[in-house]
Design a binder for these strands. Structure first.
Lengths: 181, 181
DNA sequence: AGTGTAGGCCAACAACTGTTGACATCGCCG
DNA sequence: CGGCGATGTCAACAGTTGTTGGCCTACACT
């Protein structure tokens, strides 16, 4: 029985996500991805055109920011932390963006775009004076991304060892202050 | 007039630092570094053996943590922020470690070592109950590294636009809470 | 002036990369 | 049964990378 075109395309994409998340853009080779699916590298080219397009498909993730407007104002901090922990542990998308964004200017630009288009407005809606919103969003991003960096990328042992509750307990008030105070 | 051996070696090292800081390990090629110094790539090999050793020389940075024990207890937070801002703006060492540590396991391991050997004890000395020190150090690292990531690596515009004073104003209390409360 | 040597260049290597085009084979449909 | 399109393989390409060894050449010293 042969696989359908869509099936192998999905297999390739899954393998590519893993490789890009684990190794970054340069070290995730098309040959390695193809080997993971036990397939010829030329298949990857046929289905995705070239490496850049394959990466674009693999890195097409939706941050799915939650709607904070319905929440009691004093709990936006914890809400954001828990959401991001879920997001990071859910799939490899976040890891891909961070691992590659650090050395790939195009991805960094994309992160700036996501940040400005999605997180900024979200924060702006919370506050009376919207002029402070970008700075506040930036501060929040720094703490959230820093936690992700230490826990999921650099794997600092004490940070890995912390429970979700501990992280929420410590980061919640920080984000609360950055966002709403 | 010919250059002395030590001179060119220093030139190569300086160019390597720039390239590794700007491009990361993979994309910083020996040929590019050599071209920056207007020299033949084989010279780089002669002076540093191979690329790994060149990188080791370029990434041999000292974090130079400050001595917090003499400080009034309530100002350790701001002291740590200002120190790290200085450190990041001083030379390329920090940038090299972060850019490469994200995709290079050996550098990540080294960061874990630095963290455990230098930041951990520093924090432990501040607190009565030393069992909490690793978690606290991890939290502090997450905020400091996250700020560096957003400001110097990803260059999120609002974070870049913030002044040193603003950053100290916002991060100081956060670190103070993580470290000493 | 002759010579040894430190500093530097050149050409080439093997390995690896993304990418391409020609060829094989399975399975459906007439 | 025969053919044809979809699925997949093979071999090779051109470029880049780290790395090597042989060669040149300016300069200090006798």
């Amino acid at each position: 029985m042969r696989r359908s075109s869509e099936d192998t395309k999905a297999l390739i994409l899954a393998a590519a996500r893993e490789r890009f998340a684990a190794d970054g853009y340069e070290r995730a080779t098309i040959r390695a991805i193809a080997a993971d699916v036990a397939i010829d590298p030329s298949m990857v080219m046929r289905y995705f055109g070239n490496k850049e397009k394959l990466f674009a498909a693999a890195a097409d993730v939706d941050l799915r920011f939650p709607d904070l407007t319905g929440l009691p104002r004093e709990s936006v901090g914890t809400a954001l932390v828990t959401h991001f922990l879920d997001r990071w542990e859910g799939d490899e998308g976040m890891m891909i963006l961070l691992r590659t964004g650090v050395t790939n200017e195009a991805v960094a630009e994309r992160l700036r775009g996501i940040f400005a288009a999605q997180l900024g407005p979200l924060i702006a809606a919370l506050h009376d004076d919207p002029s402070q919103a970008p700075s506040r969003a930036g501060l929040a991003a720094s703490q959230v991304l820093g936690m992700a960096l230490c826990r999921y990328v650099l794997r600092l042992p004490p940070v890995v060892a912390m429970s979700r509750e501990e992280i929420v307990h410590w980061l919640g008030p920080t984000l609360q202050r950055y966002l709403a105070e």
